[in-house]
Simulated assay, not measured.
Amino acid sequence: MSDDRSARLDLPQLHAGQAQKETTHNEALALIDLAVQAAVVAVGVDTPPSGPAPGDCWIVGPGPVGAWAGRASAIAGWTAGGWRFVAAREGMRAWSVADGVDVRFAAGAWRAGDVPVARLLVDGVQVVGAQQPAVPPPTGGATVDAEARAAVALMLTALIEHGLLAS
């Protein structure tokens, strides 16, 4: 990092004795406006849209062209001063309006709809944890109870389909 830019969002920084500090400050605010509580029109777009409205943002795709060239994976936002970009960083999140899901930048790519958690709590009670190993369906036995086996098989199928048990 140079003394001119911030380490995480690459925001311009003020310096003592700097003329026209408001220009640097306003540029930093414009970039913060794109990054904080980000909501994007769409994810993975390579061509800048024509006629964007101020405040509209997109996540640039892997092969950007035109005004977005060289800005792959960045958040591109249209402002009164033209396009501004915030480079993607590990862990960044945004809301994808087109998909109706959170997107997260992880391992060098934007991932839509993935919500990684170690466990899920409802009112402080764990309701979902890590996937457990497969449970074999019932077999054998001296007395065959077809209805009980069918019910157990349906429960196992539902738990597998929900991803709670391995298949």
Results as ranks from 00 to 15, higher is better:
V144F: 15
A112K: 10
L154Y: 13
T23V: 14
S50F: 10
M155D: 09
E90M: 00
P12N: 02
R149P: 00
D114F: 14
A98H: 04
A35F: 03
M155H: 09
A134R: 13
V86S: 05
D10P: 00
G124A: 00
A142I: 06
V127I: 10
E22D: 12
M155L: 15
R8N: 00
P49D: 03
A166G: 04
V41R: 10
M155R: 13
A42K: 06
M1A: 12
D145L: 10
S6L: 00
P52H: 04
R93E: 13
A38N: 09
A150P: 00
R71S: 09
E147V: 15
H25K: 08
S73D: 14
A74I: 01
M92I: 07
V128N: 13
R84P: 02
P136T: 15
P54M: 09
L31D: 05
K21L: 03
Q131D: 04
V40T: 05
P138Y: 03
H162W: 03
D145Y: 11
A153R: 03
A107R: 04
E27Y: 01
A7N: 09
V128M: 10
A53H: 12
G100S: 11
M1F: 07
T143V: 15
D4T: 13
R8T: 04
D56T: 15
D99M: 08
Q132H: 12
P133H: 01
A76E: 03
A109L: 01
D33E: 13
H25E: 14
E27Q: 05
S73V: 05
V122K: 05
V152A: 10
A166D: 08
A151F: 15
A153D: 09
N26T: 11
K21F: 06
A42R: 05
A38T: 07
